[in-house]
Design a binder for these strands. Sequence first.
DNA 1: GTAATCTACAACCAAATGGTTGTAGATACT
DNA 2: AGTATCTACAACCATTTGGTTGTAGATTAC
Lengths: 113, 113
Amino acid sequence: MVVDTELSDAQVDRIFRALADSTRRDIVTRVLTGEQSVTALATHYDMSFAAVQKHVAVLEGAGLVTKHPHGRERMVRGDVTAIRKAQVLLERYEQLWRSRIERLDALLAEDPH
Amino acid sequence: MVVDTELSDAQVDRIFRALADSTRRDIVTRVLTGEQSVTALATHYDMSFAAVQKHVAVLEGAGLVTKHPHGRERMVRGDVTAIRKAQVLLERYEQLWRSRIERLDALLAEDPH
DNA sequence: GTAATCTACAACCAAATGGTTGTAGATACT
DNA sequence: AGTATCTACAACCATTTGGTTGTAGATTAC
C-alpha cells in the first residue's frame, strides 16, 4: 500500500503534538475501535466537556480523527492515515540509524588493529 | 528483537513532544547519521546556540539522543530506542483500526440486505 | 410548545514552550 | 599565562497550551 509521504513540517508537527498527550492518545484508542459522540468520550475523563471538545479538535486538526454529524451528536471516528504517516517518518529514522551502524561495522572490518 | 513496551504516559508524552518540532527532527536525522557537537549542530539553524542547546536537552529528556563528553565538546549521538517505542505504540493503534475494519467486514458479511 | 441534551465558541487564567541575552566554568591553543 | 572556544545555566519575554466557566444554537423528547 502506498502512503503519501509529502508532508509539510507543520503537518508533522501537528501529528506528533496531538499524540503527545495521554488523554488524546486514549481518545484515539477509543475511536479507532468504534466511533463515539463527544459527550460519550467526555464521560471517561476527569475534566469538563469543553476540555474534551478541545482535545478532539486538536486530533481533528492533525487528521487523526474525523467528525460526522448524526442528529445533534457529532460522532468522532479514528482515521489511521496520519498514524501511518508518522510511522513512515519513524521508519526513516530507523533506516538512518541502520546505515550508521553499517558504516561503523565496515570501518571496524577494514581496519582491525 | 524485544522492545520494552512498559512506558509511562509521561515518557510517551516526552517522545512525541520532542518529535513535534522540525528543528528537533532535523537534529535527530543529523545525529543518527553520525555524532556531532552542539556547536556543530547549531551552525545549521537560524537561532542562538542556547536555543539549540535547549532543543538538544528536550531530545535528551525524551531519550532520543545521548550526550558524550569529548574534551570541551559534548558530542550528541542519536539513540533509536525511543523511536522504536514510539513505533510500537503506532503499530498498536494500527492494530486497533484493523480489528474495527474486520468487525465491520464481518457484520456486512453476515447481514447482507 | 417546552424542557432536556448535545455541541460550538468566546473569554479568561496558569503553566509550559521556544526563543532571547548575559554570565561563568572548562578545556584547548599559542 | 593569557586568550579563544565550547558548554551550562539563569533570567527574561511572547506565544501556545490545557484547563475553566458561561452563553447560545440545534436537535430530540415529552
